[in-house]
Nucleic acid binder design. Structure first.
Lengths: 279, 279
DNA sequence: AAATATTGTTTAATATATGAAACATTGATT
DNA sequence: AATCAATGTTTCATATATTAAACAATATTT
């Protein structure tokens, strides 16, 4: 029974074939991952039930996680919640990204110029992950937190990043030809996605009138590093119907492109290199 | 500017006696924790050597961590670095804190009003941990990142939080009567600390001319929740010698106190409750 | 280019982490 | 208050994770 079947464990991952998973580690990390915005605290039996792991084992894993300052008891309850130690990991990752040194002031400028919420994402496999944001001052500010993941193929932020991949890389990333749909505009297949990306690549940006969330528009452009690789993407979001089309294709798009260009420049991107690669 | 070395700072854990630690989990987490700003990437033998764990074990732990999207190979090297999955944990923790919903706009207002960098921290045992910040626009902006830890007893941010503890709680938190010193102003013993905290408690704020980093001044106040407990602290920092003393004790202090009061109000703190508790 | 050192990966014996079961403690219900 | 149910914790036999050792595949040096 204790035998590990890495394939069956997590169907969303496309890792290279894993030979051996350390059960104690995997289970401990699984515990950490079941805590989220919606389920801030849980007790041991609930966790044991959810993960289908014996109570006595959960007990020891919880002790270990508590010892490592990753979870802590909620006072006066039998519940556990994430502890401050969990912060460390995430922020060391952020700190390891060169772009985080430059993103905040540029996002602020972009948000001020457009009056909209602005975001920077990176791609992690088939997801985009928010790594920096500036909420708009007045309007409904965007609800995404840093660390939030969205499916890359369903967002313009993801598309400008996926557009940087070759068709072969794309097929490898999406072994199933079917894609999950989130709106009428979501490409339903990898082939369809590939066509859309072709256009995004030519444009150098992508604009969506549906985005991942209904009623939200998004204008996105890729950020490139010194090797001309698209390493991140930047966007602004707005409520559909509240912004003139001429503004979208005018000032807003220009502002996003300018911000992307400025961030790219800070990462030592230069047009020359890009042209040389293309030509 | 003197950068903070979070690794060297936090040496002390005061966990309850732990009966049993799951080795696979502890070691896997140890691997994650050796990645930081200074050491962004490492290879397997280096990790094995650092943690004094056999190569074959490290090999499997690394495989597991990679499978869980917490680390990834650095392209064209044998090194590993933190992966985007690490972000999730930290931000779910942040999202679980009620205060993060309100901190950003208040920090922005405080920073704009004072022209200084502003920060919010929580306390985790004997450390303060930065959970939100707004860097000043013009001056040398502060180098602390979210997730950074500083020893509570050596900062005014920490002191306004420690001031909320009873003497018994303080002694329990610092079983050794000696305290690590970071500047001439650092209290060298728990008794000395206790005296300083008494004053901080009466004042309702704390001002430092040495702070943790040399040459940096700091004005801090506690943020309280509906139960009048000091759950966080807010401050502004400035370079010593660049700000008039009258300004520090005037506008700057007022602004910090106002920001702390506003945040406390958002957490349902009311003066009545506080007075009732005291009297 | 050959030799050597370092790193990556697998094997197999054995030390040990696991989990069913028992027991202890706490909380809920009558 | 007494009983029952749920949760917290420990024990111990055994399934399995660990690691020394061997081997394979790369780097590095000569």
């Amino acid at each position: 029974m204790g035998e590990v079947d890495p394939v069956a464990i997590n169907t969303l991952n496309h890792e290279p074939d894993i030979k051996y998973i350390v059960p104690g580690l995997k289970r401990g990390l699984d515990i950490l991952k079941i805590f989220n915005r919606k389920r801030v605290q849980m007790n041991a039996p609930e966790i044991a039930n959810e993960l289908q792991v014996p109570r006595s084992t959960i007990f020891r894993l919880l002790q270990t996680l508590e010892y490592m300052d990753l979870i802590e008891k909620v006072p006066n309850t039998s519940n556990y919640k994430l502890a401050a130690g969990a912060l460390g990991l995430g922020f060391e990752f952020l700190a390891s990204l060169e772009i985080t040194d430059f993103a905040d002031p540029i996002l602020e400028k972009l948000s001020n110029k457009t009056g909209l919420s602005a975001h920077v994402v990176i791609r992690d496999k088939t997801d985009v992950v928010f790594i920096a944001k500036k909420s708009a001052k007045l309007t409904f500010s965007s609800s995404v937190n840093i660390g939030t993941r969205l499916p890359a193929h369903g967002t313009v932020l993801g598309r400008v990043l996926l557009a940087d991949l070759s068709k072969a890389e794309l097929k490898k990333l999406y072994p199933e030809s079917e894609l999950v749909s989130f709106s009428k505009q979501t490409p339903e297949s990898v082939d369809k996605l590939s066509q859309v990306l072709e256009l995004d690549r030519v444009n150098g940006y992508a604009i969506s009138e549906a985005y991942f969330e209904h009623g939200i528009g998004s204008i996105a452009a890729a950020i490139r590093d010194g090797s001309s690789k698209a390493v991140a993407a930047i966007n602004v979001t707005y409520q559909l119907g509240t912004v003139e089309k001429s503004l979208i294709n005018g000032l807003l798009l220009e502002s996003v492109l300018a911000a992307a260009a400025e961030l790219s420049r800070q990462l030592n991107y230069s047009d020359q290199k890009a042209l040389r690669n293309v030509g």
